[in-house]
Nucleic acid binder design. Structure first.
Lengths: 178, 178
DNA sequence: CATTACTTTCAGATATTACTGAAAGTATGG
DNA sequence: CCATACTTTCAGTAATATCTGAAAGTAATG
């Protein structure tokens, strides 16, 4: 391939990558994570080499504070790892690229933030209304119980799925689909 | 039961219900739906009778506009139904109380808002990077493909599960858990 | 122990989202 | 049609979430 054609390919690659980063960031909002965090995740998922804070800042045109906070948040989730290069002081960051690992991490985090607190509330309200004899009281209690049972079930399922290996999950899924 | 004991029960019931509504509302924020919408949902799920806009406004101390908008949003989701009583002009609202139905509705909506748009982006980026010959280009393309395959798979699974009847879903789940 | 090279924090600024309340719209019944 | 009873909309305001940039913190090096 001549150098002009090669350049055209590199251009369309960087265009596609920019598109991915920008759109993934927009999606992040829907998913309840902030735009910058989602953009950094997209940036690092499609980076060949680990990147440092300054590179992230420049690529996305965000402040140091913002880049720093969201990189650390991604590390806290387990979606990004810190890499140190020997002889260098600064930290580099690299994203988990395995889709199944990404899925289990996100599933675990969502369960922690969405399912567990719901379960706590439902347990409390189910308990608090136990033994109330009026019709409204019985209705309330049984509604709390039904919700608690279902959310508890979802919690268990979430754990099971997140603990599965990719192959096993696909095997189970295949049965479900057929 | 004497009337004093009965009153004590009614108090603890309304306390438990208030707690549920308030906490469910706080949770809504985590789930990406606004507090009022989640509170109205909690209110109606634990109401014995359908409620009208004014009753909702008063129970939650919110404005007419807010109550109206969120009631209609809940109706749009399918989590709440409009009920008309004969001889009355105003609309009453009643929540779906069946937990499996609630789950399938929420799953469908989340798929629509979270999975489908992701799939569209990934398809586009996968296409846009097809045939790029540089190593970075190939890496990008295969990352997009892996993500697209996984998200596509999640989309299918979501549809399948949402289409199941409660009993069937539980049967499948039982196998998964054991 | 001073300098350099980074990382971390956070008060204030900005952007986004949600809510209010009043006005406009609509349907029903006399 | 007019009055009444309700529903819907929306401009302005309030609340919340996010981002910036600079200052403070920390650790390695000579």
């Amino acid at each position: 391939m001549n150098s002009r054609a090669h350049q055209a390919q590199q251009d369309s690659l960087s265009h596609a990558r920019d598109e991915f980063i920008s759109q993934w960031g927009a999606l992040g909002t829907q998913w309840g994570i902030n735009r910058t965090m989602a953009q950094i995740h997209a940036l690092l998922m499609t980076a060949v080499e680990p990147m440092c804070t300054d590179e992230v800042m420049e690529s996305l045109a965000v402040s140091r504070g913002n880049a720093h906070t969201n990189l650390k948040e991604l590390v806290a989730w387990g979606l990004v790892r810190v890499v140190v290069r020997k002889g260098e002081r600064r930290e580099y960051f690299e994203a988990e690229k395995d889709v199944w690992k990404i899925f289990t991490i996100v599933a675990r985090e969502r369960k922690r933030r969405e399912i567990d607190p719901a379960l706590a509330i439902l347990n409390k309200c189910e308990e608090a209304s136990r033994g109330i004899t009026s019709p409204e009281g019985k209705a309330f209690h049984s509604q709390m119980r039904a919700l608690r049972e279902f959310v508890g079930f979802a919690s268990t399922m979430s754990d099971k799925v997140a603990a599965m290996k990719h192959g096993m999950a696909m095997q189970v899924a295949a049965k479900l689909i057929k």
